[in-house]
Design a protein around this nucleic acid. Structure first.
Lengths: 158, 158
DNA sequence: AACTGCCTCATCCTTTCGGGTGATTTTACT
DNA sequence: AGTAAAATCACCCGAAAGGATGAGGCAGTT
């Protein structure tokens, strides 16, 4: 949803042009029929003002769009009964995997096929293949089973 | 041809909307002039409509900046003395695997291919396939990755 | 001897994986 | 505004995996 004004500059240009054209028409109307169209001018001004108000209000109210905030909370816990998984962040960083690649890896570890992963992530099979391919390169393995085994050994996944 | 429409659908959409709105304006003007109703109400409606237009336009053009993604991240630091593997013999018995099938399963878990397993066990590739096939049947899985995952979950293999 | 379970191997066929390449679009950062 | 990294998707091709089926050999049991 992050589409810049750039993408809609055509729309803005179009709208502005239309607006200018209408203003011109109104102005011409005004010049030749001052009395009978005074109401139209009034209405036009009202419209412009309130459109501006809407824009201003929206910008004012919906402006604080915070970016992703990552809060890492470190909690030391001694867990004897249930074996808790602790991700080895260092190893994970070393591999330099992208978020998508990691997702694919995790689903692979669950025994899912590429097609199933594709459905799960709402992307095409080809995309999953691309991710898995790069994943294998980065992990220096040849097969998904190796990737999963290595990832588990390195405690990258549970 | 279609691509051109798609590319400028934003402009078309906004232009059309604006045009429709102006038509509505005219229509209202017409109605209220005919009925000679209060001008204040007319102005009010205009104000509301254009305020809405402003809000709508702003929301459309200045899309939400950043979608905030997951935030919390608890890092649990715990110390495990020695995670020794203890084979779950009951589950293993339930599956009723033969010794050969279990061997194949263990090698699979190391990320080995059928061919590599065949070399390791000094049997043919076909034999490994046969074992793995029966293995999957008994474990009620469809893929080697699933078999490995299930076996680890059941603590049949480390 | 007959039966049974396991191991072995084969063939045919289909599906899944993985490698390679290229293209477009998003997103992020400068 | 321009660049770099990610993410998306496509097509091709060969390798690996998996399903189905049949068959021969071997050991232990009945």
């Amino acid at each position: 949803m992050i589409k810049a004004i750039k993408k809609h500059k055509g729309a803005i240009l179009y709208g502005s042009s239309l607006a200018l054209l209408l203003l011109l028409l109104r102005w011409l109307e005004f010049r030749f029929l001052i009395l009978s169209t005074s109401l139209d001018i009034y209405i036009g001004i009202i419209a412009v003002i309130f459109t501006g108000l809407g824009v201003w209000l929206t910008l004012k109210l919906f402006k604080p769009k915070a970016k992703t905030i990552v809060i890492e909370k470190e909690v030391e816990v001694y867990v004897t009964p249930s074996p808790q998984f602790e991700r080895n962040q260092k190893e994970l960083d070393n591999l330099n995997l992208t978020s998508r690649e990691l997702e694919v890896l995790e689903l692979m570890a669950k025994g899912m096929s590429n097609q199933e992963i594709a459905n799960q992530l709402f992307v095409s099979l080809n995309t999953v293949k691309t991710h898995s391919g790069k994943l294998f390169e980065k992990m220096e393995v040849k097969r998904r089973t190796q990737a999963v085994d290595k990832a588990k050994t390195l405690s990258i996944i549970p």
